[in-house]
Design a protein around this nucleic acid. Structure first.
Length: 589
RNA sequence: CGGGGUGUAGCGCAGCCCGGCUAGCGCACCUGCUUCGGGAGCAGGGGGUCGCCGGUUCGAAUCCGGCCACCCCGACCA
């Protein structure tokens, strides 16, 4: 590609809208342009980089037996109604009517379509297992897109779907993906960790997320350096320190004016927060299909812990959950700041296991300015459910080895789900087993956000001067900077080298613009192509061209006649470096 | 959806408080000459419904009201 013909331009100033490095640099270097909130175009450089990532994914998917297909972006509502997600998913799914007034949806994922295909194509156990995948556009009307390509509404996703006759088969394909995803990320030079995760709207039994660790990440992860435990905070468990054993004592109402927070209460009574019970009031939408209702939830955790909304929502089967307001709290007979489950009516009471096992806690009296001492679950109030609903935090004990957990931030670049038969049952995805008995196909679903991955790579690989692409995903492998404006030896040499390298199958960008050297060097740094060759009259006088790796300061002078071989070898070396990172990992359940 | 911020040329901004000549600056763009190994110089030039609608006023980029878009924090979500 000749840079004089390149569709995009670099920008000297960054738009005030961009805050994170990847967003700023991808904009400045001319990889992407924003059309609307969370909606981007990929210009030639961005498109080529994206295609490189896609090809790496394709190769790996094909290597594990995947067959590429393309599924529709527009779906009839019916299949989503049959699995129930039409009712469960909120405004994140965009719906519209076609000209015949039929309800349609823009695809946010493709389990329904896969299950529909299964019902048409798979009839016998002899056809299983299968693995299909696509690289397709998804639309999710996220309430708040942000950070450039990290979180968008329209995006490209690689999604694969495994089909098996039984759970053992699923587990096998799941583990193959587990490794395969590491291969993909490693080949792109992106370090990720796999963590156990919530299954969210997918449902299913088990899931992992692949996380690129970065302070700009939106997810909080709890990691144990002792045993390797790693989980998204949404589901992370931890070793809860039990309070000292006590015999249940008699309830006692006490005046505690001005103690609407646990901190104030613990200070007034001069006791640790762990001796108190904290009531948190939420409203939740629950129900199946079109029958939904809002329920009042009273969640109780120990004073020294925090409610984990994902765990709580999972416990009550909430489709949506939000904080209750004061009127709703008083309607069940409680009181903001002085709440407890004692004597409340019409609330679903969910109690954390650490509260249920503790004795003689101080809880609210459901009356302003009063608390009750020696409150005991089961004696003073009944719990609808006793379950872990507390959030793990930095420093909490690892659930497996009790070492201190570390909290880090990460961006989810991929996920894998063991779905089971939820979708195939709903859509008639059956097959006949060896005994002639109809069974539902067992599904797994596996996603990678391709654009998000590119953004993470940009986030990881940059310096003060611009992007520094790993060779495997760089839009071009070699950047020839030609320092001459007219005809002459420099132009001839650059053109010849360009022709030879291109002929060898390399992607080469030739800066043939009639600009000053400074401009060309700045742009080369900004765009970040790994190998740079500078061809100018000054060097040619001595029969040399200059060779430089983007990531290194050092510049080498190479005899013109060796330039081709040197560049080819360098590119190969960079590939091999990344290939060495592709190694077997241990499966962490 | 709650809180905060921004909207003036392709990009970055000033002007707005305190209404008033033809709306300005830098970069980018076009023409010519010079320059040519780290974002060149000189000269000339093109480009604006001041986000949109309404109001106040002799007069609105500027004041008032409504709406829209975008960004950040939170809620939410994969």
């Amino acid at each position: 590609m000749r840079m004089s013909r390149l569709f995009s331009q670099t920008l000297r100033d960054i738009t005030a809208d961009a805050e994170v490095a990847s967003h700023q640099l991808l904009l400045r270097a001319g990889f992407i342009r924003q059309l609307a909130s969370g909606i981007f175009s990929y210009l030639p450089l961005g498109h080529k980089a994206l295609r490189k990532v896609e090809e790496i994914i394709r190769r790996e998917m094909d290597a594990i037996g995947g067959q590429e297909i393309t599924m529709p972006v527009v779906h009839p509502a019916e299949i989503w109604q049959q699995t129930g997600r039409w009712y469960e998913v909120g405004s994140e799914m965009s719906r519209f009517k076609d000209k015949n007034d039929r309800d349609m949806v823009l695809a946010m994922t493709h389990e329904e379509v896969v299950a529909d295909l299964v019902s048409r194509e798979i009839h016998s156990y002899k056809q299983l297992p299968q693995l299909v995948y696509q690289i397709q556009t998804k639309w999710r009307d996220d309430p708040r897109p942000r950070s450039g390509l990290i979180r968008v509404r329209e995006f490209t996703m690689k999604d694969s779907y495994s089909l098996d006759a039984d759970w053992e088969g699923l587990d096998k394909q799941y583990r193959v993906h587990y490794q395969s995803y590491f291969n993909i990320f490693n080949r792109c030079g992106l370090d990720v960790i796999a963590v156990s995760s919530d299954t969210g709207m997918m449902g299913g039994e088990m899931a992992h997320e692949y996380m690129y660790l970065t302070p700009i990440g939106e997810d909080t992860l709890l990691l144990c350096d002792g045993c390797g435990y790693a989980a998204n905070r949404q589901i992370a468990t931890f070793a809860k320190k039990a309070n000292p054993k006590e015999e249940p004592a008699v309830q006692e109402k006490i005046a505690t004016p001005g103690t609407a927070t646990i901190d104030d209460l613990a200070r007034l009574l001069d006791m640790p927060a762990s001796k108190t019970a904290k009531a948190v009031f939420m409203m939740a939408t629950v129900g199946k299909g079109e029958e939904k209702e809002d329920k009042f939830i009273l969640a109780v955790v120990r004073g020294d812990m925090e409610v984990n909304e994902t765990k709580l929502a999972n416990a009550v089967g909430a489709l949506e959950m939000w904080p209750a307001n004061e009127a709703e709290i008083r309607a069940v007979g409680s009181e903001p700041g002085y709440g407890s489950p004692i004597g409340v009516k019409g609330a679903l009471i969910i109690v954390d296991d650490a509260v249920a096992s503790a004795t003689n806690l101080v809880a609210g009296a459901n009356e302003p300015g009063f608390h009750v001492k020696n409150v005991n679950c089961g004696r003073d109030y009944e719990a609808e459910q006793i379950v872990d609903i507390a959030s793990a935090r930095e420093g909490d004990g690892c659930p497996r080895c009790e070492a201190a957990l570390r909290a880090v931030r990460g961006v989810e670049t991929g996920n894998i789900f063991q779905l089971g038969t939820k979708f195939t049952e709903a859509l008639g995805g059956n097959f006949l087993d060896a005994n002639g008995k109809a069974q539902s196909v067992v599904m797994g679903s596996y996603g990678i956000g391709v654009g998000r991955m590119l953004a993470c790579i940009a986030e990881e690989y940059n310096d003060d001067n611009g992007l520094v692409w790993p060779i495997t995903v760089a839009p071009f492998q070699v950047h020839i900077v030609l320092l001459a404006k007219g005809e002459g030896e420099a132009q001839d040499v650059a053109e010849k080298l360009y022709g030879e390298l291109t002929g060898r199958g390399l992607d080469v960008l030739l800066d043939d613009r009639k600009d000053n050297p400074g401009v060309k060097f700045k742009d080369a740094d900004l765009i970040g192509i790994p190998v740079r060759v500078t061809v100018g009259d000054r060097g040619l006088k001595n029969g040399i061209v200059e060779f430089k790796l983007r990531r290194e300061e050092q510049r080498l002078e190479i005899p013109v006649e060796d330039a081709f071989e040197h560049v080819v070898a360098a590119v190969e070396g960079l590939y091999n470096e990344l290939e060495e990172r592709v190694v077997e990992v241990e499966y962490e359940k």
